[in-house]
Write a protein that binds this DNA or RNA. Sequence first.
DNA 1: TCAGCCATAGTGGTCCGACCACATCTGTGG
DNA 2: CCACAGATGTGGTCGGACCACTATGGCTGA
Lengths: 270, 270
Amino acid sequence: MDQSAESAQPVHQGTAPAPQGDAAPAQKGTVTQRAIDQIKTMIGEGRLEPGQRLPTERDLATRLGISRSSMREAIRALTVLGVLEARHGSGIYVTQLEAGDLLETFGVVADLSRGPRLVELLEVRRVLESTATGLAAARITPDQLADVEKHLAAMNATDDPEEILSHDLAFHRAVALAAGNDTMAAILEGLSSRTFRARVWRGYQEEGAFERTRREHARIHRALVARDPEAARAAAAAHVGEVEEWLRGRLEAGQEGEAGGEAGAEEPGA
Amino acid sequence: MDQSAESAQPVHQGTAPAPQGDAAPAQKGTVTQRAIDQIKTMIGEGRLEPGQRLPTERDLATRLGISRSSMREAIRALTVLGVLEARHGSGIYVTQLEAGDLLETFGVVADLSRGPRLVELLEVRRVLESTATGLAAARITPDQLADVEKHLAAMNATDDPEEILSHDLAFHRAVALAAGNDTMAAILEGLSSRTFRARVWRGYQEEGAFERTRREHARIHRALVARDPEAARAAAAAHVGEVEEWLRGRLEAGQEGEAGGEAGAEEPGA
DNA sequence: TCAGCCATAGTGGTCCGACCACATCTGTGG
DNA sequence: CCACAGATGTGGTCGGACCACTATGGCTGA
């Protein structure tokens, strides 16, 4: 009953030389790809709900008429996409399908981009960050504002680049969260992935960026306190735009060139 | 240091007692996940350049000291992320790592989102679309404008919903492209994935949306011709905002409820 | 000589069956 | 009643076999 359900599927494995001629199966793409699409469709149609547990790998494989190996590849694919989550010894589950789950892969994009693409990425971030900050100015709650201030203070209290970067990220994350659009916050999170920021900063910080960053953050904070969306938007745009411009100039100058290694300023750095 | 501490690694399959005494195994996460990270790192560090061909699956597996099965899962994962591309019978290659390659997965997010998340997604799209349209008004070339007009005309010339949707998508794609930021265009592309748009439209189009859409597109076009960024931005924002508002109202009204199936209005459709 | 065909090697795609490591349930003994 | 140990189920890993597709190069025939 399982696979080979049809009269005489080719079925790889040495057997059945029969070409195909049949109609139904509609062989398109690899088996694994088909499995991926099927599961994705099941979720899309609501047959599989967030948090729900899926059948066993072995079961799924049998049901879709493929081997466990292929099924595992499909599962792995959906896992990295943040759609499924495999718990060793327990089972496979559908994630909550929230912004954070699905947009985690966005970080990969940021990490692997370089050269001109970095500027484009920053341009996108500038647009979204300014919007989010503007919204935050109108919606932020006292608690959220306190959280923002905590990271602002922490950032001003240290000179350790590592720590500064951490609180810098946390600062923006808190602001984005206050904007009330989780999806936007998740995208911004990816756009500000640690390695991404670290790469850009490496060169940037050598030009008195710390002080400037602190000043700009303070300006954003003032706008939030004043509940002034326009000021907040402008401050955020300027903040990101500052880095964007620096990077753009740097690219147009010498550092250009697809040369595999240094366009984005990455050094093992000790 | 590492987990279980016992000097002699269990090493699964009884065989191969010699791991590789080399520097720090650093057992973290699954073997496959490690392989994914390693390849990702290789690319990030420039040791693997866009378009370059990778060693054989079998080779890679041996080099990283894992089985081919695990290596295949890793490759599959990076394939769906748009980082690698496997050509049957030929080899595995690094993609060009362009915006389009990496952001293709963005469509999955749009396809799997529902309920409140749909509104958030539209909000993001409104922000980016308006920005892109504004930029396009300032930068669009005659050729690009002609392309935009082509789809505008085609959309006005038919009443087939399917075709209208196609040209609607193409219209916005052309505009986004004219903005000169491929990354932004790629994100918008994902945010306007066919199934996503179709789902929203299903209900929307029943309220005289065609006519309204045509009018709004015409307005965007006029702004582009006039090279008026502000007008273009406003027109685009209003265009997307229209749908956004409609969907928001629809959610707040009855259709709410996490109920697995209809919050986003998806029907197998005739 | 040279175009075109075909055998062949090389590579990804699929499948199988085994075993390991972890989570959970279950039943027993305290 | 609880704690612990075993049994069971599930994902994780492995190795090897074979299929399907590409690409290459040599061979054939004009």
